[in-house]
């Protein structure tokens, strides 16, 4: 029981931080709450006996990723979003409840620790036994870096203000066109129906 309570602490913080990360309107805060999730998960990892992952989670998850996010938000600007979500909140709630409760129903009552053949005590699983994963991971990182270069590389000068305006105007025009077209198609489809 005591163990359960001990575990419940980081779990609760993780969940709370996760909820806050979604609820907050500021992007920076959201990124910081994510770091909070990361940190509490790292604690949980440690308690579960996964010491290396805990360290990596702390450094990569809570550290590097947060820095990257803050950096990205700095570039993109911390835009405040309209509060009203596109998908009705009730629908989202219902769907999540159904899916997660079903999953829980499948998993929770039957989850038990299974004793399998004990694994080698060495910590060389990552580098040796699962070496192929590491190799593929290298490929993945290569692709990711190339993707980053591809998306962000600027051959033209970075945007200066007038171009932003121009694009915004273009977008406005496109949107208006789109609205016009959709209203047209609505009208025509209605006409089709009445005919």
């Amino acid at each position: 029981m005591l163990e359960a309570i001990l575990f419940a602490l980081p779990i609760l913080t993780a969940l709370l931080a996760g909820i806050q990360a979604i609820r907050t309107r500021s992007l920076i805060r959201s990124a910081l709450w994510l770091a909070g999730v990361s940190a509490s998960i790292a604690v949980l990892f440690y308690m579960l006996g996964a010491h290396q992952v805990a360290v990596i989670e702390l450094s990569v998850g809570a550290g590097l990723v947060t820095v990257l996010f803050v950096f990205a938000i700095g570039i993109a600007g911390a835009e405040i979003q309209p509060q009203r979500p596109i998908v009705p909140k009730t629908l989202a709630w219902v769907l999540i409840l159904v899916a997660i409760l079903l999953l829980a129903g499948f998993a929770l009552p039957f989850a038990t620790t299974v004793q399998h053949s004990t694994e080698p005590e060495t910590t060389s699983v990552f580098w040796q036994q699962r070496g192929l994963d590491v190799i593929v991971q290298v490929v993945l990182i290569f692709c990711g870096v190339l993707g980053l270069l591809g998306v962000l590389a600027e051959e033209k000068a970075p945007l200066d203000q007038p171009m932003v305006d121009e694009i915004a105007a273009e977008r406005e025009r496109d949107l208006r066109n789109l609205e016009y077209q959709s209203s047209q198609s609505m009208v025509s489809s209605q006409q089709g129906q009445t005919r």
């Binding site: 699962r130 994963d133 593929v136 991971q137 993945l140 692709c143 190339l146 993707g147 591809g150």
Partner: peptide, 17 residues
């Protein structure tokens, strides 16, 4: 199984760009 996932993820990452 897990190796399958990481190949799968690598495929996804290579197709985003």
């Amino acid at each position: 199984l897990f190796n399958l996932w990481i190949w799968f993820e690598a495929m996804a990452v290579s197709s985003y760009l």
